[in-house]
Simulated assay, not measured.
Amino acid sequence: MIATNQDPDPLTTAGLEPGGGVPPGETPPAEGSTSEAGPLQETSRGWAGTPLTLIVLLAVAVAGFFLAYAVVVNAQ
Rank of each mutant, 00 (worst) to 15 (best):
P10Y: 00
G49T: 13
P28V: 09
G64V: 04
N74P: 05
V22W: 06
D7A: 14
S44W: 09
G46I: 13
G38I: 03
E36C: 07
A48Q: 10
P18S: 07
F65G: 05
G21S: 10
E26D: 12
P28W: 13
T27V: 10
L57Q: 03
F65V: 10
L57D: 01
N74R: 15
P8V: 15
L57I: 09
P39K: 00
T27P: 06
E42K: 02
G46D: 00
P28G: 11
V73C: 06
L52S: 15
A37G: 04
V72Y: 08
G46Q: 06
G21M: 08
E36W: 12
V72P: 07
Y69H: 00
W47V: 01
S33Y: 04
V71S: 08
L16Y: 06
A30Y: 01
N5E: 14
L16N: 06
A61H: 12
P24Y: 01
G21V: 06
G49S: 10
S35Y: 08
E36I: 13
T13V: 10
T43G: 11
F66G: 02
A14E: 03
D9Y: 05
A75W: 10
G19I: 12
T4A: 12
P51G: 02
F65M: 08
L16A: 07
A75D: 12
D7F: 12
I55G: 08
W47R: 01
W47G: 02
I2R: 08
A14P: 03
P28M: 12
T50A: 05
E42G: 01
G46S: 02
W47P: 01
A70N: 03
T43N: 10
T50Y: 02
Q6N: 07
G64A: 06
S33P: 11
A30R: 06
E17V: 05
S44D: 05
P10C: 03
Q76W: 14
A75R: 14
L16S: 05
V22G: 00
G21L: 10
V56H: 02
A63K: 00
V60W: 05
G19S: 09
P18Y: 03
G38Q: 08
G19T: 12
D7Y: 14
S33V: 03
T12P: 10
N5K: 02
A68W: 15
A30Q: 02
V56Q: 05
L11Y: 14
D7T: 13
P10Q: 07
Q6C: 01
L16K: 12
T4L: 12
W47T: 01
T27M: 11
E36Q: 13
E36D: 14
P18H: 06
Q6I: 07
T4R: 13
V56S: 01
S35N: 13
T50K: 12
T4G: 11
A70G: 00
T12M: 09
T4I: 14
I2V: 10
P39A: 09
A70Y: 05
A37E: 10
L40H: 13
A70Q: 00
V60D: 04
V72A: 15
G15P: 15
L58W: 04
A75Y: 09
I55N: 10
V60K: 00
N74T: 14
P24I: 05
P23T: 01
P8Q: 12
W47H: 03
P51A: 03
A70H: 03
P8M: 11
A37D: 14
P39H: 02
V60F: 09
G49M: 06
S33K: 04
F65H: 10
P10F: 00
F65C: 07
A48C: 04
N5Y: 07
A30L: 06
